[in-house]
């Protein structure tokens, strides 16, 4: 598990770094070189999808997602633990039904139909593959949470 966490963090740092450099490059090629790059806009948008999906998994892991704590606020002990089962269960259902199944279908479909992106002309299946991938990660995190106890990593730095 620690290895998955670490790997995900490194990947996110890398993607964010690339995204900054990519957009700076876009401005530079247009304004300084007068020869605008045709790819940077598309790269930035695709990186955004990857960061949104994978970052969403990381954010779940560290408990950064927004929620409504009116009920959970008042629960203690066994009741809190039962609620955790429901929460993790809902997350796992979403991960499996939407991200893995729906996202997987989307990947298979775009792959089968040889659909490419407009500028880079890479397969859209590659771009969309992040959806089932993050579904798998979210599933892992949800199961891990149930096995090792809730909120282990949560609220590490809320101050």
């Amino acid at each position: 598990m620690a290895m998955i966490d670490r790997g995900l963090q490194y990947l996110l740092i890398l993607l964010m770094g690339i995204m900054v450099v990519n957009v700076l490059w876009q401005v530079a090629t247009r304004f300084l070189l007068g020869d605008p790059s045709s790819y940077t806009e598309e790269i930035a948008r695709f990186l955004l999808i990857w960061i949104g999906m994978l970052g969403g998994c990381h954010a779940y892991r560290v408990g950064a997602h927004l929620g409504l704590d009116i009920l959970s606020h008042h629960l203690q002990g066994a009741a809190r633990w039962r609620l955790q089962w429901i929460i993790s269960g809902a997350v796992i259902i979403f991960a499996v039904a939407v991200l893995i199944y729906g996202g997987g279908t989307l990947v298979l479909l775009t792959n089968e139909l040889h659909q490419t992106s407009a500028s880079l002309e890479i397969s859209m299946a590659v771009i969309y593959s992040v959806i089932p991938l993050s579904g798998a990660l979210l599933c892992c995190f949800g199961v891990d949470e149930l096995l090792t106890g809730p909120n282990i990593h949560r609220h590490a730095d809320t101050n």
Binding site: Q9, L12, I13, L15, M16, G17, L48, I51, G52, M53, L54, G55, G56, H58, A59, V62, A64, H65, L66
Partner: peptide, 20 residues
């Protein structure tokens, strides 16, 4: 820097996933 990048990713991803 890596820590700052990760923190920014985490905060943005919360919003991006909501927008999604």
């Amino acid at each position: 820097l890596p820590g700052i990048l990760l923190k920014a990713t985490e905060t943005s991803a919360v919003v991006l996933l909501l927008i999604g």
